[in-house]
Design a protein around this nucleic acid. Structure first.
Length: 554
RNA sequence: GCGCCGAUAGCUCAGUGGAUAGAGCAUUAGUCUUCGGAACUAAGGGUCGGGGGUUCGAAUCCCUCUCGGCGCACCA
């Protein structure tokens, strides 16, 4: 990308200035650039002179001047200036900038593909909500973040695998099964209450009805007896199917759905991990339970792995799961995306990963702060155990998948979100996603009209694209690779929607000021059509990375 | 009590140690209305929660205080 070339130019200028004796010899910190807020300060600005003035024992402005004299010529760079108190400002050549459009169009949906991932495998696991109830609004945030990060990392050259970890074992699943059986019995006229800690939501009763319709009384046991485990298993399958459908509704598709239960298979990861921990002396038996002595590894306390009832804890299975990710499947990187309420789990999973032979540095846990759901001033509980559940599906049906995704993506993960259901519809009308999509539709419409009139961008002379609005748009198009890099480095997808808005704004400004199709100016028309094609490519690419549609009409 | 996250315009939020802190919405005033008005231009609106410190330079880094969210289970 162009930024890397600019950085290289400044590095070479430093070397040359030192070689020529204009600057003393010293080891320099790495060169960085930024985009100045004000256009008169150039397209790229390097603050290197300010940072090395001490090392050079010179005034920053003099360092800058010495560097400026040694910046090598480059076709992309028009001029280099020095600005107080010691900035080196570089200006891109308007004709070079305009000429980049052809490459963007040629690259198409591969535009801004990076090699930083170097083909490394990365597994991204997200949502993984208990399959004891439907996906709710809070889960949707993780879904939007995870699926977007996956797309962006793929664009950055990683081999990405997206996974959903199905918690199909453990206490909550058992409670779900008992709730389902209670609902099932009720359908046969038995006066049975759902369990105290059960799931009161209507969806459990609906599953019971569906299973009754399909299987009749097959699962009925004599009164007072426990239910047939097959009923629970089938109910869980239906729940997982519903989750899969709801997530597909906002464009989320996983490569793999991983069963927690499968970890317990004979010779599987769970047994392996327990053996590994035991061999290394990290296991202690206390109070009838089996403990991981994680405090030996710097954790604040030990944790139970096997409860007194003989069942493994969520932590134990999670260790096995991460062993499977790192050791069995050998991912180079693993990214877990969790709600902030799991924050306390982060360090002990990392400790466990290290204990079973994985590299904790290769594990990133991306926490997103919780979504509080409101209906006007009232806070709506998100718990599955509360009666009312505001499902992701409900919200998507009301405000649309594109607006929902954009809404979740636009806010940084560290920021708590308030989702006001009363305002959801109104907000969706004002959602900036439509502003972005409208830009794409507008371009498509103009290009269609041009085709009708037999106009094309063939052999366009891009050097005609000198209008400030054209140049502003062109510079925006060049930024996407930097945005992708930033999203990957920071694991922060929220940069993407902000970029999309800036790009759309640059386009709408161009559209207002520069008429594209002009009969009396065939050459300019060709050049502007080329610019439109490039803009459409970049806009569509940006929207697609966010999992949002790029409509040709709206 | 300990830990993680946050506090920036009326509201929702961006902001990489840089130059005059930005956007959307809202408000006000305009443009234009033959390529799509879901558009464009402009104005008003800020002690970047308070206080110290580091630095040529701090919304950004460090310390501290206040307020808010979330954790600190043999639930997940």
């Amino acid at each position: 990308m162009i930024r890397d070339e600019i950085v290289a130019l400044v590095e070479r200028a430093l070397d040359a200035a030192q070689a020529a004796g204009d600057l003393p010899q010293f080891a320099s910190p790495p060169v960085t650039t930024e985009h100045p807020a004000r256009p008169e300060h150039g397209d790229f600005s390097a603050n290197l002179p300010l940072r090395i003035q001490g090392l050079a024992r010179m005034k920053a402005i003099e360092v800058a001047e010495a560097l400026r004299r040694h910046v090598p010529a480059h076709p992309a760079v028009d001029r280099v200036t020095v600005a107080p108190p010691g900035f080196l400002n570089l200006y891109l050549s308007p004709s070079w900038v305009a000429a980049q459009t052809s490459a963007m169009i040629a690259a198409g949906d591969d535009y801004a593909a990076l090699t930083m991932g170097a083909g490394k495998s990365v597994q991204i696991e997200y949502v993984s909500a208990n399959p004891t109830g439907p996906i709710h609004v809070g889960n949707g945030r993780g879904a939007a973040i995870g699926s977007t990060l996956a797309a962006v990392m793929a664009a950055a050259g990683y081999r990405v695998q997206q996974e959903y970890y199905i918690n199909d074992a453990g206490t909550q699943v058992a409670i779900f099964g008992r709730t389902l059986y209670a609902r099932y019995q009720q359908l046969f006229g038995r006066e049975v209450e759902i369990p105290e800690n059960g799931y009161p939501g209507a969806y459990v009763a609906e599953i019971a009805e569906a299973l009754k319709a399909e299987h009749g009384d097959r699962f009925l046991r004599p009164e007072g007896e426990e239910g047939d485990p097959d009923l629970g298993r089938l109910g869980l399958e239906r729940m997982v199917d519903a989750i899969r459908r709801d997530l597909a509704g906002i464009g989320v598709e996983y490569d793999r759905w991983f069963s927690e239960r499968s970890l317990m298979d004979e010779g599987g990861p769970y047994g392996t991990v327990m053996g590994l921990l035991r061999d290394q002396g990290y296991i202690a038996e206390r109070d009838g339970a089996t403990w991981f002595t994680s405090s030996d590894l710097g954790e604040s306390k030990d944790n139970v792995l096997i409860r007194t009832d003989g069942q493994p804890t969520y932590y134990a299975t999670d260790i096995a799961y991460h062993y499977d990710k790192f050791i069995t499947r050998g991912f180079d990187r693993v990214i877990d995306i969790w709600g902030a309420d799991h924050q306390g789990h982060v360090s002990r999973v990392k400790a466990a990963v290290a204990a079973v032979g994985g590299n904790p540095e290769a594990l990133d846990v991306l926490l997103f702060q919780l979504v509080t759901l409101k209906r006007g001033a009232l806070v709506v509980p998100l718990s599955k155990r509360a009666g009312e559940i505001v499902t992701l599906k409900d919200v998507v049906e009301e405000v649309g998948a594109d607006a929902t995704r954009f809404f979740f993506l636009a806010i940084g993960a560290n920021q708590t979100m308030e989702f006001d259901l009363d305002l959801a519809k109104k907000q969706s009308d004002e959602n900036p996603v439509y502003y972005v999509q409208y830009g794409h539709a507008r371009i498509s419409s103009i290009l269609a009209k041009a085709r009708e009139e037999g106009l094309s961008s063939d052999a366009a002379d891009t050097s005609l694209l000198t209008h400030p609005a054209e140049q502003a748009l062109l510079r925006e198009l060049l930024l996407l690779p930097e945005v992708i890099e930033k999203v990957v480095v920071e694991l922060a997808p929220h940069h993407l929607p902000h970029y999309a808005q800036a790009l759309a704004s640059a386009f709408h400004g161009f559209y207002t000021q520069c008429r594209v199709i002009q009969a009396d100016q065939p050459d300019l028309t060709k050049a502007r059509l080329l610019l439109l094609e490039a803009t459409r490519v970049v806009l569509a690419r940006t929207l697609r990375l966010m999992g949002i549609s790029a409509p040709t009409s709206m």
